[in-house]
Design a protein around this nucleic acid. Structure first.
Lengths: 225, 225
DNA sequence: GCGGTCGTGTCATGATCGGGTCATGAGTCG
DNA sequence: CGACTCATGACCCGATCATGACACGACCGC
């Protein structure tokens, strides 16, 4: 299961957290201060880090910042201070969530699951692409809209994936021709238009007024973010 | 800025949330029940969804699940019920975060930022140009002024990028013609003036008294540092 | 082999939008 | 005061794109 690092100076809280998480099936390490946390984090792979705010030496904010500088690992701040200012500061320091003590083990576990779910998901090789109510499963070669499968041809599917892989970025016709049709393709750039149109009829709520597959005049096409 | 969908039945809370988020620069839509939420979500692109737990018709959990079945969009539950059981249920339903009312706007905004930060796996890599309250995203082909998108044509966009790439440096008409229009362009240098003017109407606070795109008499144009 | 279907690329048409030119006026400098 | 430079607004043509129709070939069942 996932490896989790706990950074907490209070011995009792630390071991109770550790127990609770091991109960959930996680592989847990724990340290009592920020320096050790940074050292250990550099030496071992962790999938998530829990940091207490009040630490001897460098505090939780700073520890979080240092870790964030070298990694995008999910970080949860676990602390007694529930002041809005602290919450905001913690999140701005790079934490993904902020839980106040006394916390309930079940809730912390749920938040950890939610965070791991997301971080795995938007990690590389995300199995699923989506926009609006459209879901694309590149592996399965399936496109669904509002749950129902939409049949796409091979070219349409590749084109859709190419757009969905770069949401918000404008892709020129040349780029699309190269990536969807192949490096050696010498054809009319208008060809892209036709396939975009066909895609729109299958994927857009109103193909006449596209909301997702947008044309950027003179530049190409892009998927709305 | 990012588009956010609010799902909340209480009219007052809804509008106050909306205001608070618009204050932060987000582009906000809101609906009063789960059905409308799902419908709108399928028809418009959103980057994040806020869902209240207590909704008429299908409740917040179910709304979250339906959306989650169709998309990996970040979801935050915002609700009055702070029971651990509800928190866990919300997160298990697919929510990424769970905020209890009464909430502080600053904290909600910070949590939204944290979530968007993580969900944008790509956004950070792209370079961004800016001056004053204008932000240019070359990859996305987007120009924003004070957060709101300003439509620029292809030539305007290229010209603006060219200027923004050399802030403080005077660029002659010949240089601009060469770099924006192409090496072989033989046309009137006045052409640049016209496009500068068009840019100014879109980007300058007062186009008659330019503060950013400055004319250097006899030499060309430059972007103010 | 034969006819049908399906996917793909090409073409013609029409609407829209963007870009280049021009005439005019204001501002600036010698 | 001219001469030059730039700003402004209007205008027209051509580029660009959406759309629908169609031709060609691959694939498949018969």
């Amino acid at each position: 299961m996932s490896r989790i690092l706990i950074v907490e100076d209070d011995e009792r809280i630390r071991s109770s957290m550790r127990l609770a998480l091991e109960e959930e099936g996680y592989d847990v390490d724990d340290v009592g201060n920020g320096e050790d946390a940074v050292t250990l984090f550099g030496a071992e792979p962790y999938e998530l880090v829990l940091i207490d705010l009040m630490l001897p030496g460098i505090d939780g904010f700073e520890t979080c910042r240092v870790i964030r500088r070298q990694s995008t690992v999910p970080v949860i701040m676990v602390t007694a201070r529930s002041d809005t200012h602290d919450v905001v500061a913690g999140l701005e320091a790079g934490a993904d969530d902020y839980v106040t003590k006394p916390f309930v083990a079940k809730e912390l576990a749920a938040r950890i699951r939610a965070l791991l779910r997301r971080s795995r998901h938007d990690g590389e090789g995300s199995a699923v692409l989506s926009f609006g109510d459209v879901v694309i499963e590149p592996e399965a070669g399936v496109v669904r809209r509002a749950g129902v499968e939409v049949h796409c041809t091979r070219t349409e599917f590749r084109l859709l994936c190419e757009l969905a892989n770069h949401p918000g970025k404008v892709l020129s016709r040349e780029q699309l021709l190269e990536r969807v049709w192949g490096y050696d393709y010498f054809g009319d750039g208008r060809l892209v238009d036709v396939h975009v149109r066909r895609l729109r009829t299958k994927v857009e709520p109103d193909p006449a007024l596209p909301r997702f597959i947008l044309t950027v005049r003179g530049m190409g096409y892009k998927l709305a973010v």
